[in-house]
Design a protein around this nucleic acid. Structure first.
Lengths: 229, 229
DNA sequence: AATCCACCTTGACTTAGGTCAAACATCAGT
DNA sequence: ACTGATGTTTGACCTAAGTCAAGGTGGATT
């Protein structure tokens, strides 16, 4: 099988002794989901964790009224659902396939054994969780201390710095999903994009492409130095 | 020194081979802070992490206008500032002593070596970070999907379940700090406590003691099934 | 080209909770 | 007992962003 090939491409498993990939492959289970299908629900028992093999997965919280807050969106090679592996108990959030998705599932007990034997893997996992904590800190900061225009600006700048490196951005998710990621609703997002356009910070075609006109202005919005009129 | 004694009382270091405490002790540095003193600031280089030996520490984010959001409050035996040890870069938040506080500081390089040699320590650390991720998920959920009365109810129930096991609670922090922990401001907190009192969910003496009158009602508020009038 | 569907936008309205300002309470230290 | 620091409460006001409802857009399907 090319499962070994897939595994060796996962960042989490980089820098391991070669024969470990074989061991990892022996404990892994392949799973397949359609768009919109639930992978796990908040409160489920977490008896292992997942890595996206292809497609995309969102991890999110749901309010009593059904509003959703996306915690993260994961693409190929990214792990999710690790919390219960180490802290025990249930999954703290829901996970759902955003498109047709294949995932690799690593049963808990076998994986913990692997970690015990392999300090490199342990350190990779620690780095992974630490990065996630950093991102969560930043999300908490945004939700508590910034307004929606600031959060949106930060997201646009993040997009332009990582994915495209350019001034012409293409959103890789729907605006409704972006709203949920930013902790707001589509209507509010739409209005703020409109305001940013009239202030000539961006140019939006109403589709998924956005052009950054004033990077500095966006940075000021993101930091809270400036506000929209 | 009784540093070894202190170290063996730290949950993070439980379940390790006995001689490791000696090794840990050899890399640790003792530090001392007064109330209000900064331990580190967001953006500082993180060249190690800390464990509270005595006193209390708050870890928080600050907005551009100076509003603060507390991420966690740490007491004796609890570690903080671990993110940069494993994910590199700077501290993602500020840390400050809330009272006279002693901390143990673990320099990064030496600690990473220790982890590599000790799978138990690695797993303890993974459990620690996972628990923190769980708490952050819950904070994100609260900030994004719940109103202040819901967050406060959840906090009061949490207090009564963990610390006192009873119906008579004593806040261990000022109401201003509690507001910052819940992602609101003292005025709002004060008004909501007043409303909860008139609805006979709690009895508040205006000091730091609060009596739970209607646990079920609080639980409904916390889950979002009910709202204050 | 007509229909459908998912997605996006706009307008009118409401509201949770923040801001500002003032007064009040508590407690430690001189 | 007085002073000052620290924390709490209350009132009047404001605003960011949510709700509800209607309409618009564009791509895909038949």
């Amino acid at each position: 099988m090319d499962i070994i090939k897939q595994i060796s491409a996962i960042p989490l498993f980089q820098g391991l002794a070669a024969d470990y990939n074989q061991q990892i492959a022996s404990i892994v289970v392949n799973k397949h989901y359609q768009r919109g299908q639930t992978i796990f629900s908040e409160g489920d028992d977490g008896n292992g964790f997942y890595v996206v093999a292809s497609g995309r997965v969102k991890v999110f919280k749901l309010s009593h009224e059904g509003k959703e807050q996306i915690l993260h969106i994961l693409g190929t090679g990214e792990p999710f659902g690790e919390v219960p592996v180490f802290a025990g108990e249930h999954f703290p959030a829901h996970a759902e396939a955003m498109e047709e998705t294949r995932v690799l599932f690593f049963p808990r007990a076998a994986f913990v054994e692997l970690i015990k034997k392999n300090p490199s893997l342990a350190l990779n996992m620690l780095a992974m969780l630490s990065r996630r904590l950093r991102r969560f800190s930043s999300l908490i900061e945004d939700l508590s201390l910034k307004e929606v225009p600031g959060r949106l600006s930060a997201y646009l700048l993040y997009l332009s710095e990582t994915k495209s490196q350019s001034i012409n951005l293409t959103l890789d998710i729907s605006k409704a999903q972006l709203a949920s990621l930013l902790g707001t609703i589509p209507e509010t997002l739409s209005r703020i994009l409109a305001r940013m356009s009239t202030e000539e910070l961006i140019e939006s075609d109403g589709q998924r492409s956005i052009k950054i006109l004033d990077r500095h202005g966006l940075a000021e919005l993101a930091s809270g130095e400036r506000r929209l009129a």
